[in-house]
Design a protein around this nucleic acid. Sequence first.
DNA 1: TTGACATGTGACCTCTGGGTCACATAACTT
DNA 2: AAGTTATGTGACCCAGAGGTCACATGTCAA
Lengths: 107, 107
Amino acid sequence: MNEDDDRVFKALADPTRRFLLDLLFAREGRTLTELESEVEMTRFGVAKHLKVLEEAGLVVARRSGREKLHFLNPVPIRLIHDRWIDKYTERHVTALVDLKKALEDET
Amino acid sequence: MNEDDDRVFKALADPTRRFLLDLLFAREGRTLTELESEVEMTRFGVAKHLKVLEEAGLVVARRSGREKLHFLNPVPIRLIHDRWIDKYTERHVTALVDLKKALEDET
DNA sequence: TTGACATGTGACCTCTGGGTCACATAACTT
DNA sequence: AAGTTATGTGACCCAGAGGTCACATGTCAA
């Protein structure tokens, strides 16, 4: 359980991996070569990152012939949220975040 | 903005720092020496971790005489959540998480 | 079957980050 | 004032992670 945690947070620690999650969040079911074209890096690097994300459970993959399709799994993200944001204070925090966003939009 | 992100995720990548957040989540306003007593590490190590958490905005500190009181700031956590969990799919994910927890409790 | 395409594996190099220590400053107590 | 308490700073050591390459497997198309 704790090892799972560690894998998730370590996976999120790298900016390239977060960008890959962003790409999958925008459109799911992408292949390795497709993701590679969006990143300034070798295919091997991207493959390594995807493996880390997969082992952390943040990405789920499905094979289709010689291709491998990748999907984003939001559950671990939600668990991070629940760890440090109490249900009673959640309303309060969301209000704070909305306020912050509103202030930034004005500028 | 992107550098802020990076600081937050890098800060969360270390298990000791996550444990410190847990301690502050349980009871806020703790001092360095108090936190040190809960961790198997030198004071210097803990101080270093607290600095990282503070620079990431996950911990906010207030001085009181020669003591420094530390508080948890949940806003960055909420922003992580909002980055990859759409408001429309949030209900769905929460249901999944609740189901998972229920299944684990049965065992 | 032959060649092109999509992905997987292990070794290797480099550099960042966790942890400790010696030293220093500031504040409370008596 | 003197000693104790709470915290801050810079240097140092070492394990681990990011990135690339050479090589290998498996799948589609003609």
